[in-house]
């Protein structure tokens, strides 16, 4: 039995599907309660219906983009786990980065089914769960007090520190990307027996993916095709991954 057959087994689907179903029920409960509260407040039902309809239509396209992310991760982590992660709590860019970091910790050179073992998988799955729990944890501990305080104090955000905080977050991601791109450059330049003789496929894939992203940005910003943005990350990733297959076939 291959590792992917194990990761796609019915019991794994049952565990992941059960959690997705639980979260779906939570969403229904919140929705019904909010609707009733709106009616009690005398809000226009047509207005609330319009909010639901617009949110549904707004979400369909990005959801297809997220599904592409499930496909992208299913080759290394099986289908049920990425399905759970991207239905609940996760985001595509987060899941891939953390999965890669966890793969390194268990001694894998890359996140792939070829090197995956059941222990590596459960370790990766645990790290993915632990690293993204902060929003839920902070909501549980502080939301009531935090919102009450904002309600009383007006909730305006400061200028200087908040401005830098926002930039620092972006800088942190830039640093993260630089570390990985640097590793691809290093692997190509000094990974082989001779200089510039190492594995160049990650670098080529990253290049194709970046070019596709540039195309998506051009279409959404310059050509008014804003819907392209919903697919930009997942779409660029899939084009980059397709390039990896073509490069392997041709080179």
């Amino acid at each position: 039995m291959t590792i992917l057959s194990q990761l796609n087994g019915p019991a794994v689907y049952a565990v992941c599907g059960g959690i997705v179903a639980f979260v779906a029920v939570v969403c229904v409960v919140f929705m019904v309660r909010a609707w009733r509260a709106g009616v009690a407040l005398g809000m226009d039902k047509a207005k609330m219906r319009r909010v639901i309809t617009s949110s549904v239509t707004f979400t369909v396209l990005p959801s297809v983009g997220i599904l592409l992310g499930v496909i992208a991760l299913s080759g290394s982590l099986g289908t049920p786990w990425p399905w759970l992660r991207l239905s609940v709590v996760g985001a595509l860019h987060y899941e891939t980065q953390v999965a890669q970091a966890a793969a390194e910790q268990v001694g894998m050179s890359s996140l792939s089914a070829a090197e995956m073992t059941p222990r590596a998988f459960t370790t990766i799955a645990l790290l993915m769960s632990v690293c993204i729990m902060w929003g839920m944890l902070l909501s549980t501990l502080f939301s009531k007090r935090y919102l009450k305080k904002l309600g009383g104090g007006g909730g305006t955000k400061g200028g200087g520190a908040a401005g830098f905080g926002d930039r620092a977050m972006t800088a942190m991601f830039i640093g993260l990307i630089c570390a990985y791109l640097g590793s691809y450059i290093g692997a190509f330049v000094s990974g082989g027996q001779f200089p510039f003789n190492g594995d160049w496929s990650p670098l080529a894939v990253a290049g194709v993916s970046a070019l596709t992203m540039a195309g998506c940005v051009y279409l959404s910003e310059k050509k008014g095709m804003a819907w392209v943005e919903s697919f930009s990350i997942a779409g660029s990733m899939l084009v980059g991954m397709a390039a990896a297959v073509l490069l392997r076939l041709w080179v």
């Binding site: 992208a72 991760l73 080759g75 290394s76 595509l92 860019h93 891939t96 980065q97 890669q100 890359s110 996140l111 792939s112 089914a113 070829a114 991601f173 990307i177 990985y180 791109l181 691809y184 496929s201 990650p202 670098l203 894939v205 990253a206 290049g207 194709v208 993916s209 970046a210 070019l211 596709t212 992203m213 540039a214 940005v217 930009s232 990350i233 660029s236 990733m237 899939l238 084009v239 980059g240 991954m241 397709a242 990896a244 297959v245 490069l247 392997r248």
Partner: peptide, 18 residues
């Protein structure tokens, strides 16, 4: 398989541009 082995470079390429 080469596609799935390159999920991470594909992600970082896209994010690098962004």
């Amino acid at each position: 398989q080469p596609a799935f082995a390159n999920v991470v470079p594909a992600l970082f390429g896209a994010m690098a541009y962004k």
